[in-house]
């Protein structure tokens, strides 16, 4: 099935969900409200004609005042793919975790939290993954400023300006 067929099937099963297919080049993306995400994801995985058993990638993207979480799905059995996008405001950056549906999301969600500051409710192990546990801020935010030092280790101007070369 191609993306619009999958979208049609989903819209039939969830008429109230408000699934919008955005025509983005080169592949369309389906926008989904976060309240419906877990339910729709479970269906995407379990429906025999969809059977999305692989969560290829989970990415967090900052777009102005919004944070997007993008789910790239793939079905090994049917060789088709689908993309979900969930948008939340920065002040309310809480997403439901899909790690119960695709366990691989566990680490991807930890990364999205660490790098972009999106909280995932229902996550079994909600910690930072790449940065140190006591790191401050979320580095991939556009307004992120690198700290001057970390635990008294200088991070900027490591070399004094008058260093002989």
């Amino acid at each position: 099935m191609n993306q619009s067929e999958i979208h049609n099937r989903l819209s039939k099963l969830f008429p109230s969900a408000g699934l919008v297919l955005e025509e983005i080049q080169p592949e369309p993306v389906c926008r989904i409200p976060r309240e419906q995400l877990v339910e729709v994801s479970a269906l995407l995985r379990d429906d025999p004609s969809l059977h999305f058993d692989c969560l290829m990638c989970l990415s967090a993207v900052e777009k102005g005042p919004e944070l997007h979480t993008v789910y790239h799905l793939y079905s090994i059995r049917h060789h088709h793919r689908f993309t979900l996008r969930c948008i939340v405001a920065k002040e309310d950056a809480v997403m439901p975790s899909v790690s119960t549906i695709w366990p691989t999301a566990e680490w991807h969600e930890r990364e999205a939290y660490d790098m972009m500051g999106i909280q995932f409710s229902g996550h079994p192990d909600h910690r930072r993954i790449l940065c140190a546990d006591d790191w401050e801020g979320h580095p991939l935010r556009k307004d992120y400023k690198s700290p001057e030092s970390f635990h008294d280790i200088p991070l900027t101007n490591i070399f004094p300006p008058d260093l002989p070369l």
Binding site: I24, P26, E27, M56, C57, H72, T83
Partner: peptide
């Protein structure tokens, strides 16, 4: 061009994807 893509290839370690 404006757009977004998830592209994946088979590296020796497995599926390397770039979004």
């Amino acid at each position: 061009p404006v757009g977004e893509i998830y592209f994946r290839t088979e590296t020796p370690k497995g599926e390397l994807g770039f979004y």
